[in-house]
Design a protein around this nucleic acid. Sequence first.
RNA 1: GUCCCUGUAGCUCAGACGGAUAGAGCAACAGAUUUCUAAUCUGUAGGCCACAGGUUCGAAUCCUGUCAGGGACGCCA
Length: 532
Amino acid sequence: MKSAVAAFLRSYLASKKIHWDETLVIDIPKQKSFGDFSVNLALLLSKKVGQNPRTLAEEIKAYILNQDKKGIFEKVEVAGPGFINITLSVKKLQETVLEILKKDKKYGHSNLGNKTRILLEFVSANPTGPLHVGHGRWAVIGDDIARLLSAVGYKVHKEFYINDAGRQVEMLKESVHAILEGRDIPAGGYKGVYVKEIADLLSSKQDPKKLKARAIKHILTQQKHTLAALGVKFNFWFSEKSLHHKKTIQKTAKELVDKGVTYAKEGALWFRSTDFGDDKDRVLVRGSGEPTYFLGDITYHLNKYKRGYPHLIDVWGTDHHGYVKRLKSSMVALGYPEGSLEIIIGQLVSLYRRGEQVRMSKRTGEMITLKEVIEEIGVDATRYYFAMNDVHTHLDFDLEKAKEKSMENPVYYLQYAHARLSSILREAKKRGSKIKSKKDIFILDGADDRDLMKMLLDYPDELAVAASLRQPHRLLNFAKDLATYFHSYYHKNRVISDDKTLSSARLVLVSATRIVIRNILDLLGISAPDKM
RNA sequence: GUCCCUGUAGCUCAGACGGAUAGAGCAACAGAUUUCUAAUCUGUAGGCCACAGGUUCGAAUCCUGUCAGGGACGCCA
């Protein structure tokens, strides 16, 4: 709906031949008396045009009212220093309810993305141990972002990069090998119980050459299971080793050399990343002739572009933030547009139980795995908890609270709203109360009806914003608000009554509300129960 | 020392693009159920938006500095 309002403003600007590059800000005011949408264009324009903002606002108001042939707006008012407050007509809101029933599962979707292909890489944990809670956050956030972007018209593919080539997996092999031969695990090796399990599993298979591959495969399989249990499915699993295999890494080094952004020093090949704003230059090929992880990663990202994705998104933990600049620099150096590689840095997760922090230590092997968390609190609460906060904030994840069925755990609040909506429809059927005609919605014009309908109308805008900012938590907040509006409506208005037309009208509204809540839960991979 | 994130009610957090009286849940207190699910609703109370400057018609939001918490600064991955 915001874009419809924006269209009126653009048309106004065009009619006055005013050039306006900045985005048009259309707000949903906090205060209800200010209407459904608020526009500050007159305030911004007054500087440029040199006119009193209120006079300008009056002019815009007159223009909008004159152009509104379909009766979308009920009221357009000039207020305060020069805001234009817009109130939608009830008719527009009622029509939106019908639109929801018609579009059903597709309601809220749009084509903002214009089918642009995006490769979204996330989790990409080392295949050296089970996934932990931190990975859980990236898994849920990454998956949600993919779902949001798909819903607004991008063609998104999800990828997991398997670091199966470096020193880490070598250490894994050494560790397993040591156990099999009854030796102590070497310094820097992996000591968790899972290493012992792998050793037990592989003890009968004697071929030591295949030990590493088998250990990796085993861990990877478990990681895949855990992610699948969370409802996270990747389109591609990309092996780092496959890059080394094909010698493409050397080709990348040559490309960089050809671009003139490298130099040799102390036997190593360096990338002059300081030319691109990095704080120091970075080694691409070591003195030993071995490529660095960095060069491998450049190759990998190059590979992504070459597979036909003009836009790349990576989701990383904050412990990798120092790496952002150099990777982006390398892509710019190779001629890819700035901004076409987007890296989302998320803060880490601390695990709590009843307010006490649960320490995670790989060294002692004492840790709670993601799998255990999912088993303990369930998929819905896990997905909700990991998605409920902005990824830029540290997340304190309290296992006990996540299990509670209270408002400390809002996932139930949302699901309860859906169950209640379902229950009303079920009960109506049982009592023979039904929707006579969808057009009965046109008799609903009370303040409560209006408020609820307005929330439903806002959903597509909220989804679009959440997707473009890559912030799934915004959608959860919206869903919570919508649920509040509905719960409140429910207490004030009886849906099923002797008044057949009124019942019919309210059943239409209930159906539409249920569709929107269900769509949001579906989108975020949380189940929408009919009964609780 | 340099860089990144965070600092909003007692607690957990929303407040994209600067806007009109800063919001929600939990906890506290007071209420609501013969009626479609009380895992719900209604109300009261609770704030120097870390601190200090600056930018402007207007700042929780932008800029600078300070303080506090977390993280990163390898020819590791």
